[in-house]
């Protein structure tokens, strides 16, 4: 199918964005990598009237360390840039690991972290990583900046806490010395959105220290499995089995094309075990 008739404007800086947005009306959408937005247009699932291209806005670019030692990743950072950035590799390596699971190279070359968070697909990797790492989404609007914890930012299926006139400017990852994070997912074919996935952060020290298991693809947003986390934190031989059992209380997965709730829960249990084991393996390997 062809897109519905569209207007296209390109913003060169932030004031430009706000001005163009105010002019274009409430249906207009900002265009980042286009990897989620353009397919919805081609399916005629949305009819925004006007696209405001933000890809030339420098203020939304770049990966750098900020004052409190946090890593600030600009919203326009593409998945591919994230995957090969040296600072990311050292500071938040799980971001780079996640990139390898997102779609295919052509899509990673254009898709952005801001777009991924704004689109809020419940099966997407980066939003789950942000929740597991307690990242902060920096929203910017005509009235200024807001800092929103990732878990509060993602409010439901394809919905976020972003106000109509706001944009994601960046995501900040606080330094977490000694903490390790792994990501695992199960997809029928490489590059597909996951049937289910997990990001598990823990430490410093043992994998049972302050574990934060976040699941994706099994709910309407990334789900922090608090009951399972509590079981893991107890430690000991029975902890994993208890945590797996506790997932029944944490997760209420909807059916999708791959299977029903019982199937999703089974995958979640397997993923939890694999994530815990890979944290243990990673520690042993040091």
């Amino acid at each position: 199918m062809k897109s519905p008739p569209l207007g296209y404007v390109r913003a060169m800086d932030m004031p430009d964005v706000f001005r163009l947005r105010a002019n274009a009306g409430p249906d207009a959408r900002v265009l980042a990598g286009g990897q989620s937005l353009l397919p919805t247009l081609a399916f005629r699932l949305s009819d925004p009237g006007t696209l405001i291209d933000i890809t030339r806005v420098d203020a939304l670019r770049g990966i750098r360390l900020v004052a409190d030692g946090a890593l600030r990743v600009g919203a326009l950072t593409t998945h591919a840039e994230l995957g090969r950035d040296a600072l990311v590799r050292v500071r938040v390596p799980v971001l780079a690991d996640a990139v390898g699971l997102i779609a295919h190279p052509a899509i990673r070359n254009r898709g952005t972290i801001g777009g991924s968070l704004a689109y809020a697909d419940p099966a997407a990797e980066l939003p789950a990583v942000c929740v597991a790492l307690d990242a902060v989404v920096i929203a910017v609007g005509p009235a200024g900046e807001r800092r929103i914890a990732a878990r509060d930012f993602l409010t439901g299926l394809f919905t976020t806490a972003l106000a109509g006139d706001e944009l994601i400017a960046a995501v900040e990852f606080r330094p977490m010395p000694g903490r390790r994070t792994v990501i695992h997912e199960l997809a029928r074919r490489s590059g597909d959105y996951a049937m289910a996935g997990i990001v598990l952060a823990a430490g410093p020290g043992t994998p049972t220290h302050d574990p934060r298991p976040v699941f994706f693809g099994v709910g309407d947003r990334p789900i922090l499995a608090t009951r399972a986390a509590a079981c893991l934190a107890v430690g000991g031989a029975a902890a994993l089995a208890a945590a797996q059992a506790a997932l029944d209380g944490d997760l209420d997965p909807p059916s999708d094309q791959h299977g029903g709730p019982a199937f999703k829960r089974q995958l979640a249990r397997v993923l939890l075990a694999r994530a815990v084991n890979s944290l243990i393996d990673a520690r042993d390997a040091r």
């Binding site: 999708d256 094309q257 791959h258 019982a262 199937f263 089974q266």
Partner: peptide
Amino acid sequence: LAALGRIPTETA
């Protein structure tokens, strides 16, 4: 998984 008895047979 359903054949293995790991999950009940359910329609997606």
